[in-house]
Simulated assay, not measured.
Amino acid sequence: MLNALEVFTPVIVGLMVGVEFSVAFVINRILDALPGNNGLRGRAHGGRMLGAVMPFWYIGSLVLSAVWAIAGWNTAGAGLVVIAAALLIVSVVMSILLLVPINNRGKTWTPENAPEDWKEQMNRWDRYHYVRVAVIIAAFTLLVIARG
């Protein structure tokens, strides 16, 4: 079981990192460059779609890391896995406290009902997201190193 966790956990976390990295540095830049309010529509749709999937992915990654830490408690990389799990907890807390409230508002916006400051709110979401991406990249890196 430990061998499966050592392979499966970094793969799941790594895929999550890839999605979140692409949102931060590719997709949102493309959406922001669209003319008119098309970027708003794209961000609202992305917020609905990814907002439905990402909670399971974040919590699932955390659970896998915690199970790995417990199952491999007496192994050489256990400390790194514990730190990675702690970083994933930070990412979940950041999501709940900082990103989800903005996303919940943004996913309902249309060009007709968006607030005047929608771009500022999206920029705030982006800044928080950059930090969250750095946190999950660190967690992923630790998991890969712990695999040894």
Rank of each mutant, 00 (worst) to 15 (best):
T110D: 07
V135H: 07
H45D: 05
I83P: 05
N123G: 12
S61C: 14
G39N: 06
G148Q: 09
D117K: 07
V67D: 13
N74W: 00
E112K: 12
F21L: 05
G148E: 01
G106L: 12
N74C: 09
V81P: 02
Q121N: 15
A24V: 02
Y58D: 09
A84N: 02
Y58V: 04
L50V: 14
L50F: 15
K119N: 14
V11E: 02
L50R: 14
V23F: 10
F25D: 07
L142H: 12
L80A: 11
W57Q: 00
A24M: 09
V90N: 10
L62A: 10
L98H: 13
Q121P: 01
V13F: 12
V23G: 06
G18C: 01
S22F: 13
A84K: 00
L87R: 13
L142C: 06
N103G: 06
I30S: 12
I102N: 08
R127C: 05
N37I: 11
G106N: 11
V11C: 06
R132G: 03
G148Y: 05
E6I: 08
L98T: 13
Y128V: 02
L80I: 08
I27Y: 13
A71K: 03
A114Q: 06
R43M: 07
V100G: 10
R29K: 13
G60W: 14
W118H: 14
F8I: 15
L2K: 04
W57K: 06
W125M: 08
E116D: 14
N104I: 05
A52K: 13
I145F: 13
V67Q: 03
I70C: 12
F8G: 04
A139F: 08
L34K: 04
N74L: 11
P55N: 06
I145P: 04
F56Q: 08
S65N: 08
V53L: 12
S91C: 09
V81A: 01
T75S: 12
W68T: 03
V53E: 08
G51I: 04
V135F: 10
E20N: 15
P10D: 09
A138T: 10
A69I: 05
A84V: 05
V23W: 12
L143C: 01
S65F: 04
P10C: 06
Y130C: 03
G42P: 05
L31W: 04
G148R: 04
A139D: 03
V100E: 06
R41G: 09
E6D: 05
V19C: 10
V81R: 01
A146G: 07
L88I: 12
G77F: 08
W68I: 02
S22Y: 12
